[in-house]
Design a protein around this nucleic acid. Structure first.
Lengths: 143, 143
DNA sequence: TAATAAAATTGTAATGATTACAATTTTGGT
DNA sequence: ACCAAAATTGTAATCATTACAATTTTATTA
């Protein structure tokens, strides 16, 4: 399918995590829908194809993937957890107008910081919020 | 009390937000407890002094303060919202061993990024996780 | 000082996301 | 085909947050 998917499949194999039908569906879904979907979004969409799907299963699978390092939690909003199959370092930008969450490239090592000497760092998340160019246009056109 | 507190008081005045007893207590609490407390922590601690305090009030007051720009939400963990009276740009580091969340200085403008041209940015959050020096020591001493 | 309207607070109930857990189904290896 | 382990399901429980109506407090004005 693509690099991200292939890498995930390899990792699952390496970590002896079975690729069940549900897990494969969720994996495919995440690879095809890079919009950082919520649990409910994933559940509702996959349930169309697999009618007897349980939401608990989605929770379980996502937990499994997160623990395996295949999926990253995007915690940009305090009332909903989102999931991202792209695990390489990058930033997340949420447009507060349209609600879309997009990725942006960052060179995290370029960030000048002090106060973490002696810390072992395992996770780095950069979340920005604001208004995307399209929504800015719409707002300005209302004049 | 201190600069942060004084600034908050001024801002409340400027924005015509009354400094009720509850609001003052919450403000003082946040200024004295820069550990990024949860709603429940704030509620339980202040209730010791004000026994007929309602948790809804804490939610209301924190919402008011966030809307007024006096308090920042710290969303580093997906199952709990935390609050921070320091609104100047800085990063948050959570030690996954002891659970403490500490501040670190960042020069956010030093972060090299691409993909946000044309966006209006209003919020910038930097969340790191890992293990703090003290916990690293404890872990190593277990050998 | 008393009256009054607006704002703040309270307490209860509702909501919604997540988790716990026991029962059932599926899977891979013999 | 059989069996043990793993995965999935569905229901109930939990927990944080919100909605909302009732009550209390506050600032203002008569």
């Amino acid at each position: 399918m693509n690099q991200v998917y292939d890498h995930a499949i390899e990792e699952l194999k390496r970590q002896n995590i079975r690729l069940s039908t549900r897990r494969q569906k969720v994996l495919e879904y995440l690879c095809h829908n890079l919009v950082h979907p919520t649990v409910d979004r994933i559940y509702v969409d996959i349930k169309k194809e697999l009618p007897n799907l349980s939401k608990t299963t989605i929770y379980n699978i996502l937990d499994t993937f997160v623990d395996a390092g295949l999926v990253r939690i995007v915690n940009i909003e305090d009332n909903e957890v989102r999931y991202d199959i792209i695990t390489e370092p990058h930033g997340h930008f949420k447009c507060v107008e349209c609600g879309a969450i997009s990725d942006f490239e960052i060179d995290i090592d370029s960030l000048a910081l002090t106060g973490l000497s002696g810390c072992k760092i395992t996770d780095q998340d950069v979340y920005f919020k604001g208004i995307c160019p399209e929504c800015l246009l719409n707002i300005n056109n209302k004049d």
